[in-house]
């Protein structure tokens, strides 16, 4: 745990969020906050509504009800490219990389929100746009070094093993220099060594850049290890919210997990 790091004010607050798909109630009156510079864990059994919550935060899903307050502005819904421009970056449970493109190009797309020259300049690939492209390229090379993926720089990501794809996807999210990083099961399907690497990257990002992180994870050991605070969802409702230790001993949480298989 990173108790030394000072946790700041509320960066994001979701209030009374409800979301349904036809007959399925994915989220019911969920309220919680994410504070600046903290690592927040979101846990819960399969189908609890964790991914749906991240999708509401970055605007892929529009809630039926509730409010989202991000950096002091309250909205009833986000829009994905607006969320991206406001500093929210994310990874997906089922990796969503550009499979035909190289590692480098994938991470370069993460810089999209930071490209300032207008499209015409970019199209012509002239003058200032070219200089800018080179600057972005340098930033991306730093991320590639940081994630230790120099060797696969030019490889089309569709050909990479799963663990490396997850790493590239993290790289693409980092390229946006986000204030809020949403990670949907960043360690799913990884072996122990890969998990340790990923934990290290997440903590380093949080430490070095003060990036606020909200992550979904099924591996309890990992959650207890790297999260400052944990929110627990079950059947679309929040059933607990507190320090990892408090949550672990919470009776509702124990009941929710009892007899419920999770991977």
């Amino acid at each position: 745990m990173n108790n030394a790091r000072d946790i700041g004010d509320v960066l994001l607050k979701v209030e009374d969020i409800s979301l349904s798909f036809g007959g399925v109630q994915a989220l019911t009156d969920v309220t919680f906050e994410v504070r600046a510079r903290e690592v927040l864990g979101i846990i819960g059994p399969n189908g609890a509504g964790k991914s749906s919550m991240l999708n509401v935060i970055n605007g892929f899903y529009h809630p039926d009800k509730g409010r989202i307050t991000y950096k002091g502005t309250t909205r009833t819904k986000m829009r994905p490219h607006e969320a991206a421009r406001q500093g929210i970056a994310r990874t997906f449970q089922n990796i969503a990389l550009f499979k035909g493109m190289s590692t480098l190009d994938n991470i370069m797309t993460g810089r999209n929100t930071m490209m300032h020259r207008n499209f015409l300049w970019q199209a012509l690939y002239l003058g200032p746009a070219r200089t800018e492209e080179l600057e972005h390229r340098r930033a991306v090379e730093r991320i590639i070094d940081f994630l230790e993926i120099e060797a696969i720089r030019k490889t089309p990501v569709g050909r990479l093993p799963y663990g490396l794809q997850k790493r590239v996807e993290l790289g693409r999210a980092l390229a946006a220099e986000p204030e809020l990083l949403l990670l949907d099961e960043p360690m799913a399907g990884m072996n122990l060594e890969e998990k340790e690497d990923m934990c290290r990257f997440i903590l380093d990002v949080n430490d070095e850049f003060g990036t606020t992180i909200a992550l979904i994870e099924h591996d309890m050991a990992v959650v207890m290890d790297i999260c400052d605070r944990v929110v627990v969802l079950d059947y679309g409702r929040k059933i607990a919210d507190g320090s990892p230790d408090a949550v672990r001993t919470n009776q509702d949480v124990i009941d929710a997990y009892l007899g419920v298989s999770h991977d």
């Binding site: 970055n58 892929f60 994905p80 490219h81 991206a84 421009r85 970056a89 994310r90 997906f92 969503a96 990389l97 550009f98 499979k99 035909g100 493109m101 190009d105 370069m108 797309t109 993460g110 999209n112 929100t113 490209m115 499209f119 970019q122 199209a123 690939y125 746009a129 492209e133 972005h136 693409r172 946006a176």
Partner: peptide, 22 residues
């Protein structure tokens, strides 16, 4: 070009393209 890259990204995966702010 950057915009060509954005076009390829959109062609590859709409959702991911939206998530990176294209």
């Amino acid at each position: 070009t950057a915009i060509g890259r954005a076009l390829r990204a959109v062609a590859d995966d709409h959702q991911a393209a939206l998530a990176v702010g294209i």
